[in-house]
């Protein structure tokens, strides 16, 4: 039993997880040094609250990158689900639910299209991102709307022991781990990403794995949209545009590789948290936003450059 738990933990942590974890700890300690009041129930809640949507978006991106694809529609995809949640779900629950189901179906269709027509995912998802943006703007021409009552209730709740955002991050980690290492889809996804020839030669369908992965990614994007709606209590189709590139950086920071197959649940969540917390840290240091953008770039490059030297040392 203990052995099984240990091996599960090993899987959950995956390779290359030590660096993103270390980066997260360093950024977190830096934040506490700058502003010690952060280290409290409400402080951590506030700090992590804004990071939670990006965490779920990064999981979605991680699944797609695991296939050795890339999803350029993550930002506007979250924007669309955010708009659906704030603009439709709040007033017409059934219709909103239907829209979200259609969103998942749309993603699955994209996956099928990429496999069947053998077209580059990077441009198909780019085209799709315009569609998500347009649909989002149709639902909410100007940022606004409101969070559904139940979502607002959940978000204002004081959860026991840990603040809600921290619970959500833990749920995200568990969900990503379960999907990747405890389901057939996870097995297919990692196998396909590692060696497509072997995967196809084994008689498995490449259309199915992509459809399922994209549908699963869409579900995580919906959760990202829901948490964003809960956080901001409104909808904005363009507000999360920078999630596309932040999520890619988060996955790579977390030990993922563009070549696919290499994926770590905990790693990419740490990566997403680092990307999000760097912004908070620079804000706390009261660095002007104009400089913060560049500092963010430098830190991102430094951490990812460090990853190579780190793994080189471990060899």
């Amino acid at each position: 039993m203990a052995r099984r738990i240990a091996s599960s933990l090993g899987e959950a942590l995956g390779r290359d997880v030590s660096l993103p974890l270390l980066a997260l700890v360093v950024v977190f300690i830096a934040i506490i040094v700058v502003q010690s009041s952060v280290f409290s129930y409400f402080g951590i809640g506030l700090l992590l609250g804004s990071a939670v949507p990006l965490v779920f978006a990064t999981i979605a991106q991680g699944l797609v990158i695991g296939l050795s694809d890339i999803d350029l529609g993550v930002g506007y995809g979250v924007g669309l689900t955010n708009a659906i949640c704030a603009g439709i779900l709040a007033s017409h629950f059934g219709l909103g639910l239907l829209c979200l189901v259609c969103f998942v179906a749309g993603y699955a269709a994209l996956g099928a299209l990429i496999s069947v027509r053998r077209v580059p995912a990077i441009v198909v998802t780019l085209g799709a991102s315009f569609i998500w943006l347009g649909l989002g703007e149709n639902i909410l021409p100007t940022p606004g709307g409101s969070a559904p009552g139940w979502l607002a209730t959940i978000y204002s709740a004081n959860t026991p022991l840990l603040p809600l955002p921290l619970w959500l991050v833990i749920v995200a980690a568990a969900a990503a781990y379960l999907v990747l290492f405890r389901t057939r889809l996870g097995l297919m996804l990692r196998g396909y990403g590692s060696n497509q020839d072997a995967y196809v030669a084994a008689g498995w369908s490449r259309v199915r794995v992509r459809m399922l992965t994209y549908a699963c990614a869409a579900v995580f994007l919906i959760i990202a949209g829901l948490t964003l709606t809960g956080l901001t209590e409104s909808g904005d189709p363009t507000g999360s545009a920078n999630y596309t590139l932040l999520s890619v950086a988060g996955v790579i920071l977390g030990g993922g590789a563009f070549s696919g197959g290499r994926i770590s649940a905990i790693g990419m969540i740490c990566g997403a948290l680092v990307m999000s917390l760097i912004g908070s840290l620079l804000g706390l240091l009261s660095i002007a936003p104009s400089f913060a953008t560049g500092a963010e770039g430098v830190i991102m490059l430094a951490v990812i450059a460090g990853r190579r030297f780190w793994s080189g040392e471990n060899k």
Partner: peptide, 26 residues
């Protein structure tokens, strides 16, 4: 509207890619 423009642009990109399909990518 701008919203329709975005949807149309996305749809045309995907349509051109899927019609061109393998001849464009492989």
């Amino acid at each position: 509207s701008v919203a329709v423009e975005d949807i149309f642009e996305g749809a045309v990109i995907i349509a051109v890619l899927s019609i061109g399909g393998t001849s464009m990518s492989l």
